[in-house]
């Protein structure tokens, strides 16, 4: 029976990218895909713990959370959301290009994704810098004195409660930024591999898996943006 299994075992005439312990290319691709999704599931639970902590403290110290949220730069946060959404488009175009053997489209979109990743981190750095200047970084130099609670004139936010908001802000956005840095690393590696012509319509699993990771990081930010920046914004 000259099916693909026989071909794989004999090692003749099969795709060199097909590892010997897989019967077919489709099985290899599906295994990688399932493994990636299970990894993303662990990542969801990883971030889930932080979202849970955020939720508990937001309900407990809502006044301080809304006062502290108003000090974040809304325009920069919204711009970063748009930047990440654009990068998700370039990623999905890169996957499409890899599947359809469009070399320049693949390289171009991988480069654009890396650039957009750096733009995101640059804007984040500007925001972090502002936090240091305003002494909004949790620690001994933290200051949040005489900040009014929105909707309650004359009532000041409790600085130690506001500090919890900023601690969550730095841990959540910091962990997200770490994922962005790793994502950029993955895409630089994909770019060098694509440059060498390693990806074909038959074998492009790394591009697809890197894409899944990037989209996941985008989804995390889609939740972080309204939860951190948009608490009680109305005048």
């Amino acid at each position: 029976m000259p099916d693909s299994q026989t071909v794989a075992v004999s090692g003749e005439g099969h795709n060199p990218a097909l590892l010997h312990h897989f019967a077919t290319e489709e099985q290899q691709r599906n295994s990688a895909s399932l493994g990636m999704w299970i990894f993303l599931a662990t990542e969801v639970m990883f971030f889930g713990g932080l979202f849970c902590a955020y939720l508990i403290y937001r309900l407990k110290y809502f006044a301080e959370f809304s006062a502290a949220s108003k000090t974040l730069a809304l325009s920069l946060g919204a711009t970063n959301t748009a930047v990440l959404i654009c990068s998700s488009l370039t990623v999905v175009l890169a996957v499409y290009a890899a599947q359809h053997a469009k070399r320049s489209m693949l390289l171009g979109n991988l480069i654009l994704t890396i650039i957009l990743g750096f733009v995101f981190l640059g804007i984040k750095a500007v925001e972090y810098n502002e936090k240091f200047e305003k002494h909004h970084v949790p620690g001994p130099s933290f200051q949040f004195n005489e900040v009014n609670v929105p909707g309650h004139p004359g009532q000041y936010a409790n600085p130690s409660h506001a500090q919890i908001f900023f601690a969550l802000y730095f841990v959540m956005t910091g962990l997200h930024a770490l994922h962005m840095i790793i994502g950029i690393g993955i895409f630089v590696w994909l770019l060098t591999a694509a440059w060498k012509g390693r990806f074909t319509p038959e074998y492009n699993t790394p591009v697809e898996m890197g894409g899944l990771y990037w989209h996941f990081v985008d989804i995390i930010w889609i939740y972080l943006f309204p939860l951190l920046y948009l608490i009680d914004r109305h005048p």
Partner: peptide, 22 residues
């Protein structure tokens, strides 16, 4: 309802990314 609206929009966006981009 501000929080509910924000989370609904975020979830719709996440769903679109997961369904079509992923």
């Amino acid at each position: 309802f501000n929080a509910a609206v924000a989370l609904t929009i975020a979830s719709c966006k996440a769903l679109l990314v997961a369904l079509f981009f992923m």
